[in-house]
Amino acid sequence: MNGEARELCVEPRVTLLDALREHLDLTGTKKGCDQGTCGACTVLVDGRRVLSCLTLAVMHAGASVTTIEGVARGDALHPVQDAFVEHDAFQCGYCTPGQILCAIALLQEGRTLDDAAIREQMSGNLCRCGAYENIVAAVRAVAERTT
């Protein structure tokens, strides 16, 4: 869990999302719908984007899970976090952890070739405040800096 081994005993029916939020006090991962439709609960499991509300915690014993709390290095924000602040890529901030984890994975996968690709690939993460234009600007800025 974010680079640390964490031991946890939960009922089999506990989702990865609820395990994070209710059992590990990692509340940065958000519950927006609990139905796999909004993307707010996106985390990385072994580097891949996963909707943590649609998977059970017990299915991921031994896996490497990255949540928003594990993205910065000490006081130094991840470049995507920095870009989200600079480009005002959020308002209420509730969808932001999921947006950032999705963006980090897309950048690693080389899927951020142009604005249209960014928009398409980020479309699984809803933002009701409508910060989409700024989200695209933030992801583009990081993509341009790293290529």
Binding site: I68, E69, A72, F84, D88, G93, T96, I100
Partner: peptide
């Protein structure tokens, strides 16, 4: 930049 930007992008 938003004063609450940092706590919102770190999950705090």
């Amino acid at each position: 930049d938003r004063a609450d930007g940092r706590v919102k992008v770190t999950g705090a």
